[in-house]
Write a protein that binds this DNA or RNA. Structure first.
Length: 390
DNA sequence: TCTGGGGTCCTAGGACCC
DNA sequence: TCTGGGGTCCTAGGACCC
């Protein structure tokens, strides 16, 4: 007896929540995204998709093809709230629920027949319960592997249910156009094309060795398994690396040190407060620079001791930034990340940790907690205020 | 009026150690 | 007589996903 997985995906999630909270928007083209020059669409409702609007499309373009759409800002807190409600319902159907993003999860139904009955009926009940309790529709894929279930859930959106029977996985994969294969993006498609490979079947015809010689050890293995509908390892592994990052695209490219310092400070603040709230520490700082011409570089440095404060992160990031930045090109985007993050409890105490520094980290943690409780509050330190000229 | 933000994983080359 | 080879850490960049 094989395994049974569901992949459950909330339909047009952000846009659906907006329609739920404002029923007048039901049946209308709703586009959730930023509002300035360089913003893109986060989620478009199905009505907007019918007009050609899709995720990642620049807002100005969406407005051109869908001028009468309802354009709304992203309300992340609200979506997180609804996401939690939905995920809690999933928990009633299996002890093994693996959330993979804010709007989708794998549910392992293997061995739940005795408790819940036929998995197909269980899946239908789950759809119904989510709709009744949260007002949201989901699309479900059911298969013997997570990988195939994931693709299956996309076959009949929205409000869909698609089953790939055990033993039919390979046949199912062979029936798909390349664009539906999860893990093959534009670049890989182009590379496949340059080798004369245009269909899943053509990839299927190649040996593992052959694929590895073209796409590398891991890429080759992935493709070989994918076109056969076999489980892809990386769903099952615990994530081993972790990072905390924040980045901003500016409405207009920045050029002066004053502007850049100000933004850098804000970004470092966001990253550091988040790290504090997660009790996360890191010794590795990565700075991302996107120039006015859209060319993008990253530079990172691993330090002997962990990043200790917002100010510390600001200094470290700045020193990396100014080694790489080319002022003539202008700054379109600035990002800062803490990488290889580990938990506070794993810290090896260093002789250099002074009383003062740990006091600083306690203060920042308190600021983060306060700001979470009172989102309208902005707490600054004396040096923040000076730089903001309040 | 071009192209967001937050992530993960992989590769390839160099340094360094045994 | 001149240069093997594996493991691990680090950096920079790339691909992909939602």
């Amino acid at each position: 007896m094989g395994k049974i997985f569901l992949h459950v995906d909330l339909d047009a999630f952000y846009a659906s929540v907006e329609q739920l909270d404002n029923p007048e928007l039901k049946g209308k083209p709703v586009i959730v995204g930023g509002s300035d020059r360089r913003s893109v669409v986060s989620t478009a409702s199905y009505e907007a998709r019918a007009r050609g609007v899709h995720s990642a499309m620049p807002i100005f373009m969406a407005k051109r093809i869908c001028p009468d759409g309802f354009y709304l800002p992203v309300r992340m807190k609200r979506y997180e709230e609804k996401s939690k409600e939905v995920m809690a319902i999933f928990g009633n159907y299996s002890p093994d629920v693996q959330q993979i993003s804010i709007d989708e999860a794998f549910i392992d139904l293997t061995g739940t027949e005795r408790l819940f009955g036929n998995p197909m009926e269980t899946a239908k009940r789950l759809k119904k319960e989510v709709l009744e309790k949260t007002g949201l529709t989901v699309s479900i894929g059911m298969a013997s592997t997570k990988y195939v279930a994931k693709i299956a859930s996309g076959m009949k959106k929205p409000d869909g249910f698609f089953i790939v029977e055990e033993g039919k996985e390979e046949e199912f994969m062979l029936s798909l156009p390349l664009e539906k294969v999860w893990g093959i993006g534009e670049k890989t498609r182009l590379k496949l094309q340059s080798k004369g490979l245009r269909t899943v079947r053509e990839i299927h015809n190649l040996s593992l060795m052959n694929l590895k010689s073209i796409f590398g050890e891991s890429g080759g293995e992935f493709l070989y398994n994918a076109v056969r509908g076999m489980e892809y390892g990386h769903f099952n592994k615990e994530a081993k690396s972790h990072s905390i990052s924040s980045e901003t695209t500016f409405e207009f490219d920045l050029r002066t040190k004053e502007e850049i310092d100000r933004e850098m400070k804000q970004i470092c603040r966001t990253v550091m407060l988040r790290a504090r709230s997660e009790n996360a520490l890191s010794n590795t700082v990565c700075v991302k620079i996107r120039f006015g011409d859209f060319s993008t570089i990253t530079a990172r440095e691993t330090f002997k001791s962990e990043v200790k404060s917002i100010e510390d992160l600001f200094e470290k990031s700045s020193s990396i930034f100014w080694r790489k930045f080319v002022p003539q090109k202008g700054l379109r985007l600035l990002g800062v990340a803490l990488q290889n993050v580990y938990d506070e409890s794993e810290r090896e105490l260093s002789l250099f940790d002074t009383e003062e520094q740990s006091a600083e980290s306690r203060i920042e943690k308190a600021i983060g907690e306060l700001e979470r409780k009172f989102p309208s509050l902005r707490i600054g330190t004396a040096s923040d205020m000076e730089s903001k000229k309040i």
